[in-house]
Write a protein that binds this DNA or RNA. Structure first.
Lengths: 255, 255
DNA sequence: AGGTGTGAAATCTTTCACAGCA
DNA sequence: TGCTGTGAAAGATTTCACACCT
């Protein structure tokens, strides 16, 4: 059970201005591409576990829900990692993507708010399994502070700055009720966290150098509802074809 | 605590081919616009509760995390609802959006998988509050089947087709482990569900007329990790300015 | 003045289609 | 022969900037 990709149709600019780093080819890597790279990485992991050593763009794309041209273009931003006439080496491409997605440095994740949703997130095996072990938990509720969830002790939100700064937390997740989110966000920023995944239905104000991604389930449902409503307008699709497939956080265009 | 918008950078086509409905101006409404409409709707609700009667595009946009030009363009797809020199009437714009987003017909939601995440989703107040009451719960686990969550009895997945068809379920949410997702999806489709929100990290195969949106938390985290890794390359941003704001499921470009 | 609605320009993404290496 | 890598075309989205109503 994974959760949400920023339903994300949008995204202001691409990775934009990455200040001319230094020497490597450091191509821009479009924002749209980044989220797909994460998907390819998951699929590569599955392929590898299945013992597959090589994949063609066609196969990898199919398993990822995109078309092969897009996949090849996406990978091309990282440089040439395939072999013409053959395909990609699963292991090495996986390694390349892990590096690109920052999976070589360990990412320590802090989760604030262990109520309903937060508790579920804390216990979500998919995180640890994918290299994002939740290493710190916080809440304001005295009934929750002090308990252990999956071996992690829940601490009071007032300790956020200290624990995050001291523990090298790079990513913060906010799963508190809306009204508490901004204050929690400020504490995370104080602790040096520059990347935040926000589940609260509010707009967070942050300094320029902090990145926030928002995950809003009701928005997802409303987008679905919109299409439900649309279908009632006129459809008359002969229930013929089958094979459809989903697309990342986006709608499967019922072309 | 809301959840995820399909991390969504993507989205094949716009609402595309809506077969010439009949008479109204039924404009295309770009897919990217749809998810923002949901955000505006939430903000309008807050404004209304606060007693605000009129908003300018500048204000509504600010509170929604977009710029005013985008907001005006988005609203223009629905027709003219503002008054020049004044702004928009909160109540009537809210009504218009609700209609457009299918919030006038009641949307019955079925949730499959009440484990860790599913349980949290079932109890998420934001759903009912935003017009998406979860009206049916399913699981395969005999220890869960039969219990009540928020007043809803958990039923066995085998009953999905019957319950969905009989209960007029329009939206299904899948919060099962990956391996079970496809089978569950097939059952939902059998029950006539045409809109599915998938939290399982797998690509669902569905008939053409069924829409799937996927929400993948690990993808979100990896996108954040990517940017964390980027920052280590070169940044040298003077920690000057403050006021940033998040953008829907997308990255706040640290321009 | 003040603020909406909207062509037209600028961007970002996706798709085509094919040259070129294995 | 098979499949990658990629310019160039096509599309979608965002941003400009300004005419036009109140």
């Amino acid at each position: 059970m994974s959760l949400p990709p920023a339903t994300g149709p949008d995204g202001p600019a691409a990775v934009a201005d990455a200040p001319s780093d230094g020497d490597r080819p450091v191509r821009p890597v479009p924002e749209a591409t980044v989220s797909r790279l994460a998907v390819y990485l998951r699929v590569l992991g599955e392929l590898r576990e299945a013992g597959v050593e090589t994949v063609s763009s066609e196969e990898l794309a199919g398993a990822s829900g995109v078309n092969s041209a897009k996949l090849r273009k996406d990978l091309s931003y990282l440089g040439s990692y395939g072999v013409r006439g053959v395909g990609y080496d699963v292991a090495s491409l996986q390694g390349r993507l892990q590096g690109e997605l920052g999976m070589d440095h360990r990412q320590a994740v802090a989760l604030v708010g262990v109520g309903n949703l937060g508790h579920a997130l804390a216990g979500y095996a998919g995180f640890a399994g994918r290299g994002f072990p939740v290493s710190a938990l916080f809440d304001v509720d005295d009934d929750l502070v002090g308990i252990d969830i999956n071996g992690i002790r829940v601490r009071h939100v007032r300790d956020i700055p200290e624990v995050c700064a001291g523990g090298g937390v790079t990513i913060g997740m906010i799963a508190t009720p809306g009204p508490a989110a901004q204050a929690v966000c400020d504490l995370l920023v104080q602790g040096g966290v520059q990347s935040i995944l926000n589940f609260a239905p509010v707009l967070l104000q942050v300094p320029e150098d902090v990145e926030v991604r928002k995950v809003d389930l009701s928005v997802e449902l409303q987008v679905l509802a919109f299409h439900v409503a649309r279908r009632h307008g006129a459809d008359g699709q002969a229930p013929g074809a089958r094979a459809g497939s989903e697309t990342n956080g986006s709608v499967v265009s019922p072309r």
